[in-house]
């Protein structure tokens, strides 16, 4: 159920990427996809009533194993968030430069490429 909603979020982003004709809209849709995927990864590592994978003062590692959520997907998501930010920055730079060239963010008005 939750996984389904998460996939739906990703598909909404994909829908935006496929149908929208505005470069900034496409970038935003990609970001939404990215969020959906990050959430998916965290959900994979989730454990019912799990705590954060941080060893509190005086806590035994065994207790942590018994109650903490899976830390590995979190580390992956941290990486993935930063990669998402990097892609976004580069694509925004491309958008801005495209705007400077064409005076618009609209893909339908950018027709220098054949095919």
């Amino acid at each position: 159920m939750i996984y389904g909603l998460c996939l739906l979020l990703i598909v909404v982003g994909l829908y935006g990427v496929v149908t929208k004709r505005n470069v900034v809209k496409i970038v935003i849709s990609l970001a939404i996809m990215e969020y959906g995927i990050n959430l998916f990864l965290v959900l994979v590592g989730y454990r019912t009533h799990g705590t954060a994978p941080i060893l509190e003062e005086g806590m035994m590692p065994e207790t942590l194993v018994a109650q903490s959520v899976d830390p590995l997907p979190q580390a992956l998501v941290l990486t993935s968030i930063v990669i998402g930010l990097a892609v976004l920055a580069l694509m925004v730079a491309l958008c801005v430069r495209l705007y400077e060239r064409y005076g618009t963010f609209d893909v339908t008005e950018m027709k220098k490429l054949k095919g």
Binding site: I10, L14, V17, V23, I26, L30, M33, E34, I37, L41, S80, V87, L90, M91, L94, C95, R97, L98, R101, Y102, M110, K112, L113
Partner: peptide, 22 residues
């Protein structure tokens, strides 16, 4: 013009591919 446009197209499709892979 063409280079930016091509790069944008490439970046969008490449990011979608990366997303599917992730």
């Amino acid at each position: 013009h063409e280079e930016l446009e091509a790069a944008f197209k490439y970046a969008v499709l490449g990011s979608v591919a990366s997303a599917l892979i992730l």
